[in-house]
């Protein structure tokens, strides 16, 4: 019994990481209806940037965030204004094709610079430390990851619903023309949204890199997990995204408990069940 409870707790914590994968995806889709196929590869790019920073400066991966986050945010802004804005319009196909191309470019560039060898971020003591919670042993890093995920979602929620920037995001999402009449330059607002999304991607990438080894090819899988968390939680609802990540994480760890080979499959099955029962996800956005 305690073993199953343990698996559920691990799953919940894993869900925090998936929610971090999903948050940026959800934000971008919410603001500009852009489905970013390169999202997973950007997570891996951030992990590699974290690797280079830790190696070059000899700092802990958490400190590397101070460099990787602004870099990713800047990259996001430049990418949005330089490339992605031009693809947005009534047709949803161009942004899909362009971000797919971007995904291929990032993977190949990473392969070129870092080779296909699996790498890992040196987390030090925090990686192996664990706590005993009433008979269930939980790692400090997964616990920390979950805490960071909750904090990030709360932060995004605050930005979205309590700040002038967030008002701009929602206004542009509602009606681009009228938002423009209010003095909002949508090209700039979209750039800021992508910058914010990639800042979150930086956090997700560093936490992923400390938790497991990574190589240039695994971005696609992270994209799928992010997607599933967003869809399970319901589009446009950030707390729902956290719930979606948790459900996906729990399904995976329970699947793995039955048979290690079932981990990923169990997650997909949970996703399909939710999709079949509630096509709009469990917590679709309520207006305002």
């Amino acid at each position: 019994m305690i073993e199953w409870t343990g698996a559920i707790v691990q799953g919940v914590l894993l869900g925090g990481l998936y929610a971090l994968f999903a948050a940026g995806l959800s934000l971008i889709f919410g603001v500009m209806r852009l489905v970013n196929i390169a999202h997973g590869d950007l997570i891996i790019l951030a992990a590699y940037m974290g690797l280079t920073t830790t190696v070059m400066l000899g700092v802990h991966p958490f400190l590397a965030l101070l460099i990787v986050m602004p870099l990713m945010a800047g990259l996001g802004y430049a990418l949005q204004r330089g490339v992605l804005n031009q693809t947005l319009g009534d047709d949803i196909l161009p942004p899909l094709l362009v971000t797919f191309g971007l995904s291929v470019i990032i993977q190949n560039a990473l392969l070129e610079f870092y080779t296909a060898d699996p790498r890992k971020l040196p987390g030090g003591a925090v990686e192996t430390a664990s706590l005993d919670l009433g008979g269930i042993t939980v790692g400090v890093l997964p616990l920390l990851t979950f805490g960071i995920a909750v904090a990030v979602i709360a932060g995004l929620q605050f930005v979205f619903y309590r700040t002038s920037l967030g008002r701009g995001f929602r206004a542009v999402s509602d009606n681009q023309d009228i938002a423009q009449l209010m003095g909002l330059n949508k090209a700039h607002v979209f750039g800021l949204a992508m910058a914010l999304a990639l800042a979150v991607v930086a956090i997700a990438g560093i936490l992923l890199g400390m938790r497991t080894s990574f190589d240039p090819a695994i971005g696609g899988g992270r994209l799928i997990f992010g997607f599933e968390a967003v869809i399970i939680g319901g589009l446009g609802n950030l707390w729902g995204t956290l719930a979606g990540g948790v459900i996906l994480g729990v399904a995976q760890t329970l699947g793995a408990k039955i048979d290690p080979g079932y981990q990923i499959l169990a997650g997909h099955i949970a996703f399909l069940i939710v999709l079949a029962v509630r096509p709009n996800g469990l917590f679709p956005r309520v207006e305002h």
């Binding site: 929602r170 009606n175 305002h288």
Partner: peptide
């Protein structure tokens, strides 16, 4: 400033937020 045909308020914004975003031009 334009008061557009058909009002075109922002549905995801509250009444006050709709007004505040009008002041965005500063």
């Amino acid at each position: 400033a334009l008061v557009p045909e058909g009002r075109q308020l922002f549905p995801s914004l509250s009444v006050e937020e709709n007004l505040m975003i009008g002041g965005k031009v500063g």
